[in-house]
């Protein structure tokens, strides 16, 4: 489909023009459509993410989970849709957002140290040329401390394990002092200790009233880690509190035949909700 056809279809879907009040939610998306070529990656998606809540974005491979985050951040261009961050346009609210990309998206052989990566999170404060002070370094070390990586500050990043790399990425996000945290698969391929460390940090953020949104693929941990779920398969399937939304019906609608019924039965779901 050409972009024009997609836009027409999206318009007929009735959601290109924002028709739902966005208020001042940490992140509100309206009518988001992104296409990487012929097929839409996400189509006319509305989503609202709340403050003081942890939300999991759930869906099968290729459902557009990462695409939704990237489009919300303007990392990839969107065909249509509107993004509102705490009631403001994206450009005016960038310093309220911290983003943790997928760990595998960067080259860990890059010549830099752990603390250097965390200091990148201070870029919006330091700008082009102002000197990095001891205060900046102390701030970065404090963020590393929160993820249990302070002892690794001067290590080359290529010497870290996958879990340690993920924690460094989280420390960089903490250094941004944001209100809205968007994380792309933060638990993918990490060890149990790291998973625990990350979830502790995220829950502390939540307790502070921050909004935390994770692209997540482990259905078994959804109920214990998250307050809300957002189910997506190119289109939005459902969103809301785990207790009401994370149901077998919605999972079937999201995954289609790709998720065996026996698998769903094993999950800690709200029966018949």
């Amino acid at each position: 489909m050409s972009p024009e056809t997609l836009l027409t279809l999206a318009a007929n879907d009735g959601r290109v023009i924002p028709d739902i009040a966005v208020g001042d939610a940490p992140l509100a998306l309206r009518g988001m459509t992104v296409s990487y070529g012929e097929k839409p990656a996400i189509f006319s998606v509305d989503a609202t993410f709340e403050a003081g809540k942890m939300t999991a974005i759930i869906g099968p491979n290729g459902a557009g989970k990462s695409t939704l985050l990237k489009a919300a951040l303007g990392v990839i261009p969107r065909l249509s849709g509107e993004v509102s961050v705490y009631g403001a346009p994206l450009a005016a609210a960038r310093n309220r957002i911290a983003y943790v990309p997928q760990r595998a998206s960067v080259d860990w052989d890059f010549p830099t140290t752990v603390i250097d990566v965390v200091l990148m999170g201070l870029y919006r404060k330091t700008g082009l040329l102002s000197r990095l002070t001891g205060g900046h370094r102390a701030k970065a070390l404090d963020c590393l401390e929160r993820v249990g990586m302070a002892d690794f500050a001067d290590r080359q990043i290529g010497q870290l394990s996958g879990g340690q790399q993920q924690r460094v990425f989280l420390a960089r996000a903490l250094a941004q002092d944001a209100d809205l945290y968007l994380l792309d698969e933060p638990f993918a391929g990490v060890d149990a200790a790291t998973e625990r460390a990350i979830i502790d940090v995220l829950q502390a953020l939540k307790a502070d009233g921050k909004a935390v949104v994770c692209v997540h693929h482990d259905l078994a941990t959804v109920s214990s880690y998250f307050d809300n779920v957002f189910l997506i398969n190119v289109r939005r399937i459902a969103e809301g509190p785990v207790a009401q939304t994370f149901t077998p019906e919605n999972l079937h609608a999201t995954y289609g035949g790709r998720l065996a019924t026996s698998h769903i039965d094993q999950l800690d779901l709200v029966a018949g909700a």
């Binding site: 990392v75 990309p101 998206s105 080259d107 890059f110 830099t112 990148m120 870029y123 968007l182």
Partner: peptide, 18 residues
């Protein structure tokens, strides 16, 4: 700084608005 950040992690650089 922009060169270093965008060379290491392009999508993070974009999320900063670079």
């Amino acid at each position: 700084r922009p060169l270093k950040i965008s060379t290491f992690d392009e999508s993070f650089a974009q999320s900063l608005g670079l």
